[in-house]
Write a protein that binds this DNA or RNA. Structure first.
Lengths: 214, 214, 214, 214
DNA sequence: TATGAATGAGAATTCATTCAT
DNA sequence: GATGAATGAATTCTCATTCAT
């Protein structure tokens, strides 16, 4: 539970407040799924009042859309740095594993990506959706371009590649991180061993194939 | 709204009841998401009482787990027939498109697959999960084997292939079938045209690459 | 807090349940305004669970619409008996005072009538409004006819008379029964003595004039 | 959205501010009920900040009490002019229709009058209530006197007449101006045609009877 | 088995008002 | 006086599940 300054007046302070709320959300996501995180908990955790969250976000969904955007931005930034220093020879070989590894290390991002279509975009307002998607598009564009360059892909192929990346992150992310109860079942039944999934391996393999064929 | 006989006594009658409920669930899924389908509606639609559903299923989740199992069984059966008559030469080329097309024609299946890890397995009891997963394993095994044979894949690769298939079905299925509100946003903003996704194309492409490299 | 039988099965028992809830509402209205009565309190007072109220009424508003209908029915029944035994000579003279007195003795009815247009009909669903209004029409028709007969009024005049009655009940009812705070102000300021209103007197006077001129 | 000068220092400027807020309230009342008008909207519309409204009014209720007072003052002034030029012969005949017509043309006033006892006086502070009522008394006194003179009524009868006027304005005003939803129900059901009310007619009739008998 | 009445937990959101600046 | 960020109380309604009959 972090507390912030008294009252946000300047745009910077306001942004700081937004960040504080987003940060609280991140924290809570370590121990609970989005559905189980209440605005009350969020408020407590960020040291603000229940209603204050709503001066910064239109809804719970808008809030988590913001978390996703911010997490995604960080992730892409991180990755971009690594991709940029990559030799063009390696890129096709190394990129899939790099992404897979990175994704696996960002379970919150995997959660958010899976929740996006299921819950977030289902309940958010059109305006919030639009804003999020436009930001997302801006975020993706240069990254797709960078990948195209490094991997010497045809124009437009970068987007397609990221699309598949996203689909796999959602699908494999869910399969590879079962809830404790599901994990217990899988572990207890030898016949279910096939359902124990190695995210990084599976993800990398698939993405590598995709990249090969582009 | 179908009505069934007064009282199910024989195992056959009981199975008929189960089927009736599953059938009602299928029907309702045409117009609503699982979350929006209430047990009350299910009861009405199957001509039974609210409580009766609980004589046949332990929970709402267990019920939809049954729907998924049943849908999946049908789907695999259908597909198996088509794969079996496939010439081994074509298989690698044709299989991905075949699966993609078929999946796209079974939106209910796409919904169920996406809901499985998110909701169904999260809330169902361990027993129900176990039962479902064991059935699923039985269902998949011969299909994976068939694919391995037809496509001349190494042992175990069939499973891996189906894993990827599943991940893509979940991820791309969600992206390619936005809710009306999301679709409206995408359609209204030229900058978002990239988010309009051709499921069959994207799916087939990816799966073909995967198959190629196995 | 009254408790009722375990489970309402027959239509009679169900009606009894409805009545019990309505009765609880009546009870609570003695000490609080409709706005201040929560469904929770209502449930407690009727010995039922929160949700149960909603199997009998679609909304809080629908519930109070029922209270109003029932109170009105009783009131009209009572009054009808008295009007019926009235000599035709007296009727025009006596009716206004009778109504005025009776209304004054039914403060809950005054409250409900005032709330009807303000809150109840504003928030209830169309269906609930329709049902209420149709019942109301049925309730009023014979009463209006009775009045026409007794007071030897022209056809249709009874309705008009009741309309005015209603308007005065609403308006004068509010003015004549100020909240404690308002009453305190009026009592403390001599200049406001005119705002201390004798409901029965004012009501009767006005209604008598109206009746005279019909 | 009107904007006012930077800072009110002189009493005139302060009064101007108050007027600006009252004016904004009037504007917003054209499209929304008092309950639906938020202080935020009021602030926006008057070009002031949320908190500033509270330098001029103790509460939302006090504010609308001011609107009512001001509207009532204008209305009485208007009407007084017309009554003053009335011939004493006509007065009794013409006054009810004049008031009815004028009231019907001031829907905002009807709203405020209906809200007065229901909400405004219920929630305002004693001081605000006192102040309002005293102003009201001052407002009414000369008008009542004027009516007494013109219509040759006994002393004190003018007040009584205005009392009835108020009651009818409240009651009939509500009945004659149903919300769209209620109107839809009434229009759709032939059995409810009696609930479609002609305010001016009903009001004038009743008031004329009252006046006759005074 | 079948029924369907009863249960009751659970949480987002609004908005008048305050008060630090 | 003016501002507007922060506050936080307060409540309806849904719906999966149970269990008496």
């Amino acid at each position: 539970m972090s507390t912030v300054s008294q009252r946000a007046r300047t745009p910077e302070q306001k942004q700081a407040r937004k960040n504080a709320i987003v940060q609280a959300a991140r924290q809570l996501m370590d121990d609970a799924s989005i559905d189980d995180i209440t605005i009350a908990a969020l408020a407590d955790c960020s040291g603000l009042a229940r209603g204050t969250a709503y001066s910064y976000f239109n809804s719970k969904e808008a809030l988590f859309l913001s978390v996703l955007e911010s997490d995604l931005r960080q992730w892409i930034d991180e990755l971009s740095l690594q991709v940029e220093v990559m030799s063009a020879n390696d890129a096709r070989d190394v990129l899939p594993a790099l992404i897979g590894k990175s994704l696996w290390q960002h379970p919150r991002l995997l959660d958010l990506m899976a929740t996006l279509h299921t819950t977030l975009e289902t309940r958010a307002s059109q305006d919030d959706i639009r804003q999020f998607k436009l930001s997302l598009a801006d975020l993706i564009r240069p990254f797709a371009a960078l990948i195209e360059t490094k991997c010497q892909l045809a124009q437009g192929t970068g987007h397609s590649f990221l699309l598949t990346t996203n689909a796999l992150a959602i699908g494999l992310g869910q399969m590879a991180r079962p809830t404790p109860r599901v994990a217990a079942v899988i572990d207890a039944e030898p016949a279910l061993s096939r359902f124990r999934i190695d995210f990084e391996h599976q993800f990398t393999q698939t993405l590598r194939s995709v990249l090969q064929s582009l």
